[in-house]
Every structure is written in C-alpha cells, then in structure tokens.
Amino acid sequence: MKVSEIQAVLGAKIFNEVDEELEVDYGYSCDLMSDVLAFVQNNDVLLTGTVNPQVVRTCQMVDIRVIVFVRAKEPSAEIIEQATDAGILLMGTHHSMYSASALLYEAGLPGEEIENDF
C-alpha cells in the first residue's frame, strides 16, 4: 500500500518528507519496541502510541520506513529530524491504535504474521 493511500484512509497528517514515494506490504501495531525488534520481518508500517527517539532507532534497525503515531500524538522536532535523516516517514492520526489498524486492514493491508520459536 502506498503512503498516500495510508494517509487518505487514516486522514493522517504527515510530519516530514522523504525523497521517494514509500510503499509498505504489511502493518504492525505495537507500543513495545522489543516486540518490534523480535517480530517484524517484512516491509511494514508501524502503528504506535509510543513517541520517543527510540521508536525511530528501533525502526532503523528493522528497516521500517513508515511510522504512524496514533491517538493524535505528536513527535518532537528532534524526533522528526532524526527520522528525516534516516529516510523514515512520520505520520499522525487521531484514530486509536485499534481503529487505525482496522481501517488499514479493511483497506487491504494485511498484518505481519508472527513467526517465533519462543
């Protein structure tokens, strides 16, 4: 799904610009960064209610390029700059994590399937 479609589906605000039009294959919704590190394997959009520089760092580690902050949370200027340097697009929606996930799923974006051996 293209970022422009995510934006339209969620009525999302875009916080920064990256040079290419990004596209994602799956969605993952999570506030725990260790979960993201453990389970994300694909080209996902991350929906999260956690807003701090470690969210961007975590996404840099697992090659997530698009982050949506839910419940109208706003990243600081510092976080936005860090994301821009890393080529990561930041968006925000007023929807809750549940509703935002449901809207994207309904629009055809599947969830990352969890494979783990814990």
Binding site: D31, L32, M33, S34, D35, L37, A38, T48, T50, N52, Q54, V55, T58, F118
Partner: peptide, 13 residues
C-alpha cells in the same frame, strides 16, 4: 518502560 522497553525480550532476542 515509557521508552517502549521492559518486555523482557532483549536477551532472548
């Protein structure tokens, strides 16, 4: 925990 850590997943990861 507020930073999104503390799930006890780091070492197993």
């Amino acid at each position: 925990r507020e930073l999104g850590f503390g799930a006890g997943m780091g070492m197993p990861n």
